[in-house]
Amino acid sequence: MSNTRKVTIKAFRFNAETDYLPYYKHYEMEVGKDELILDLLNRIKWEHDGSFSYRRSCRHGICGACAIKVNGKATLACKQNAMELLDLFDNELVFEPSSKKRVVKDMIIDKKDFWDKHAAVQPYVVADIDPHPKHETKQSIEEFNKFLDSDLCIQCGACHYSCPSLEANPDYLGPAALNAAYRFTIDPRDHAGRERLELTAEPGIGVWDCVKCFECAEACPKDINPIEKITKLHNMQFEQDVAVPNVATRHAEGFVRSIKKHGFLDEADIVVYSEGYLGMYKHLKTAMKMMKAGKIHWNDGLPWVDNVPKSKNLDEIQKLIKISQTHKL
């Protein structure tokens, strides 16, 4: 039995200097069981075409330079065994940059927006730093554990370029920057937590634009789970009284309000509660569709009609909310 496999790689090729449109070039090679995606990138460059370009450095998943997409899947090339993907994708691999619209050359993209977003959250401990300290700051293991590996982010951009919210709203900070906001806000040495919470509470920019799709968690090669940090930021905004009443916070409150009342989500009430009757008007089209699908009833929006079914164990649900709720809404 042979230890290698014949593999076809379709690589995205584009040079902003010379090409009008991108194209895909095919490379065939025998791939062994210990080879990584980075080895295949290197082999394209070293054995087939020296002009093939990509970023890389450390070779072991710690510098974050070599994030690309393989068959649409966010991949850190130096940490991903090739065989695993060959099994998944039937011996045919497609190499593409993390974001095609940002491509400069082949796998290399312009990451300016990524770094700009990162810079926006004050990605450093804000404190007066003693240049000649006699002792370290005390930090309990409990405090250390609160970082939740958010400090392990290697800025590879895999989550950033996988986030559909960011794709739709270029002003949104995105999962990587929000993870950084969490990492520094949770740091007991830092003094700018409130500013970061205020920034990340801003509608259109901050955590409220996360649509909870978990793409970032899926994409992260270091298993950092950015959405967990985004959720923590949500909570911290309420806990530290940064959250102000607006459509986003009222939307969040609306969930609790509805569950408390019915044990079920009242789709219509949440719209009324978060956006008011005037706001409701702009959702009429969606409402019509939902009515057709049977998700809401025509009179759901009327405050004097309560036609939402009640959960059987509503009292227990209400008790649970009471126990788990740390902050008054």
Binding site: Y124, A127, I129, H135, T137, Q139, I141, F144
Partner: peptide
């Protein structure tokens, strides 16, 4: 300790050092 003050996330012992 300077590196620690700057924000290095060092592992800690039971004393918090």
């Amino acid at each position: 300790r300077w590196a620690e003050r700057m924000g290095t996330v060092f592992s800690r012992d039971e004393e918090g050092d």
